[in-house]
Amino acid sequence: MTQLDNQLAIPELQLDVPVVHEDQSVLKAQSRALIKDKVIAALFALAAVAIAIPLISLLWTVVSRGLARIDAEFFTSSMKGVVGAGGGALHAIVGTLEITGLTLLVSVPIGIAAAVFLTEYAAPGSRFASCVRFLVDVMTGIPSIVAGLFAYSLFSLVLGPAYRSGIAAALALSLLMLPVVIRSTEEVLLLVPHDLREAGWALGAEKHTVIWKVVLPAALPGVISGVLNGVARIIGETAPLLLVSGFADAMNYNPLEGRMASLPVYIYTQWQMKGLDAQAYDDRAWSAALVLIAVVAVLALAARLAPRLLKGKK
């Protein structure tokens, strides 16, 4: 045992020997380098803290001011006939849910189908596929107001300039969400091992069946988290909604007809068009902001947890 220890210790001793006999200037240079290293590390840490400050401050402000109106009335009544205190955001919450749901209905099937085309059907290096990929990239950069204007002009061409509806808002938001869904789905589909497709084909399955029953289930957790990330991206959009769904004080359950409130627009109008009791409007705006942030936080968390939860189940 001791013999072994000696044997093991020898190389270490040899390594240490030159350092002991190092002259002073080298030692100083080493300690200077050490200090420099620590300073730079501290600068990076500072940057990390710097980005956390605004976030924490924002969360603190929204929570502390928003709690004032987190009450039963806020979640059960609209702003119909309310001019001062009281009232709620139920109509805006319902509006946001309906518009987001419709957006999902449009962008999830089309987005996944497009991603399946790009990864499963397009020949590698196909011109058409790279053209589609380029367009998807361009779509990612469309300013949301432009998406709103597009939806607005499309619907006013057909139904007249005064037409406002939740479905038009869903169309505008779908333009923003589609590239997110396509890109994230494409990425997770590429991660599905090619072996699995071949295993499916070798069992005598048609290509579309293999995609439907093997590839997509294997990619499902990733697809879901991509979709949830997309929802988190569009649920706070305000500009296109101002254009195409407008603002409303009363409940409108019908997304096909009429102005429809939504949380971001609700926040904007409460703050922008205050009545005599300004405090009541401010409180409602902050509470709606808190609700919106909570929804986004839950979605972001769900997007993180979806892969793990789905895998754990199986």
């Binding site: 070798a202 005598g204 499902l220």
Partner: peptide, 18 residues
């Protein structure tokens, strides 16, 4: 492929299935 089955170099059971 229904008449001529195949087993691959790397075992590839479908991960989403029991």
């Amino acid at each position: 492929r229904r008449k001529v089955g195949m087993v691959f170099q790397k075992a590839n059971p479908f991960p989403s299935m029991s």
